[in-house]
């Protein structure tokens, strides 16, 4: 039996145009699913669930002027999307420690006179997929870098504490 017969049918059964149309529909369906899943088809498999979390972020060292717009209550965002229900709970500016060697050759520990760090507590609804928690495209894990992004800010931070807030999950990871 020929693969494609004289009537343009595969094995005499399926017309080549039917097959092409089918492929186009499958591609369209995949596109819609991808869009609905926010570009992550894996999340459509039912393996993810929303989990409220609280985490503490420590910013990199910035000139104190950078913290003017960082306020409790601001929502977290990513690109053009707001994470509904997310918010900055508190902002605590702290001295940034620094170690230098002085003109006498002695090691000097002290506070950086030019820069501060901020400890920022945020709450948000993360997505859990197995052992992975994510907020948008960013993975949430103690030690991971995290862009603290609000309407006005995009500061580089490190996650220093992470706590899922739903019952039955592990407590504070620090």
């Amino acid at each position: 039996m020929k693969l494609l017969d004289s009537n343009w049918k595969f094995f005499g059964k399926v017309h080549v145009f039917d097959l092409l149309f089918l492929l186009v529909l499958v591609a369209a369906l995949a596109g819609v699913l991808n869009r609905v899943s926010g570009g992550d088809l894996a999340s459509m498999a039912g393996g993810s669930k929303p989990v409220p979390v609280r985490m503490t972020l420590k910013t990199f060292e910035y000139d104190p002027a950078y913290y003017q717009s960082l306020e409790a209550g601001a929502e977290l965002v990513e690109d053009k999307m707001v994470f509904e229900g997310s918010r900055i709970v508190s902002v605590d500016l702290q001295d940034a420690p620094i170690t230098l060697v002085d003109n006498n050759g002695d090691v000097v520990n002290g506070s950086n006179p030019l820069r501060k760090v901020a400890l920022v507590v945020v709450e948000a609804t993360a997505t859990r997929k197995g052992p992975i928690y994510e907020l948008g495209k960013q993975e949430l894990r103690v030690g991971a870098g995290f862009f603290l992004t609000t309407e006005d800010n995009k500061l580089s931070t490190i996650i220093t504490a992470f706590q899922p807030l739903d019952e039955g999950d592990a407590g504070v990871v620090e």
Partner: peptide, 13 residues
């Protein structure tokens, strides 16, 4: 431009 420096046991700008 401001920089950090250690002078006589103190950290200064």
């Amino acid at each position: 431009t401001q920089r950090e420096a250690a002078v006589d046991g103190a950290i200064v700008a």
